[in-house]
Design a binder for these strands. Structure first.
Lengths: 168, 168
DNA sequence: TATTGTTATACTCTATAACTATA
DNA sequence: TATAGTTATAGAGTATAACAATA
């Protein structure tokens, strides 16, 4: 977690935080609260992300997953190990290419993913609780424009290296 | 860095990312770009944050700093060591309480901080380049409301533990 | 020779615990 | 006894490198 202080204002007392600072501050808060909400399920955001991606792309393999998340294949091994040990997903050797592990959610995995989705919706409601429906739509629109201009892929949180990568 | 996938939409193809997800995504991007921009100066966001806080509060001590940033005193030691070795700030034992180290920027520290401030302004311009001035003001207003409702202290990036802490 | 997955290892960031000096 | 700072140590979260199996 990167801590920082709003740096954009002059040396005199800061008149207001910059947009960039507010984005980093509120975004870190959002990510942290989401992680806290996942804790009772024994999940971390990366584990939940893997569940979600595998649900959306059945028979996806670990290479695809590493590319999509912008992380190292070795870490994917650890994440998939964890989820497999809990019985939330299964590995199956592909019959076409025996190097490949096909990943699929188990029924238990689908149940847990449904809980995660509910948590995410509650999280979103909490975060925007202070806004009117109209303000929420405005915020969504503005953030979407900033994300687009920044080259961020819809739906995927940026790691340090996956910026500008085309959608898998 | 926490990676995750938008979890709020149903199992069917996601109609759009949630506000919470967009905030985390764009916020992580903003923090990452800021860190990249600081690299040529040999600084990290936490180091820059210490410079800024010491500039705003001359003769501040390390305890104050740890409280304000919501981090452990032992980490503050390492950050201050680093900045002191580069000649950007100085430690002076307080004459009133010999346990206390009073921190002050050197003239070199003030010069570097001025560069950091310029970088931060350029960073903010880049991030909001896709928005009109009016949209930028809207975004600022909306983010401020979300930050306020979330109990975030103006000007201080949240660590894992300093939420809801009153401003030092 | 290239690719998928795996293991072994290492590095960064940050905290906790134990300690020293001072109050 | 309590507090400011320091040192030593440890843990989480990742990456890189070397390797095995398969293509």
């Amino acid at each position: 977690m990167v801590y920082y202080i709003d740096m954009a204002s002059s040396d005199a007392s800061p008149p207001r935080d910059s947009c960039a600072f507010l984005l980093a501050q509120v975004g870190a808060h959002a990510a942290q609260r989401f992680a806290e909400r996942l804790e009772p399920l024994g999940l971390t955001p990366p584990l939940a992300g893997v569940l979600r991606l595998v649900a959306q792309n059945p028979a996806m393999n670990q290479s695809n997953l590493a590319d999509r998340l912008g992380t190292s294949p070795s870490w994917i091994v650890a994440l998939v190990d964890d989820l497999e040990e809990r019985g939330l997903l299964s590995r199956t050797r592909s019959s076409e290419d025996r190097r490949v592990q096909e990943l699929r959610l188990t029924s238990g995995g689908r149940e847990v993913l449904a809980e995660v989705a509910e948590i995410a919706r509650a999280h979103d409601r909490e975060l925007t609780a202070a806004l009117t429906r109209d303000q929420e739509r405005q915020l969504h629109q503005l953030l979407s424009e900033v994300a687009l201009a920044g080259g961020l892929s819809p739906g995927v949180h940026p790691g340090y290296r996956n910026l500008g990568r085309p959608e898998g």
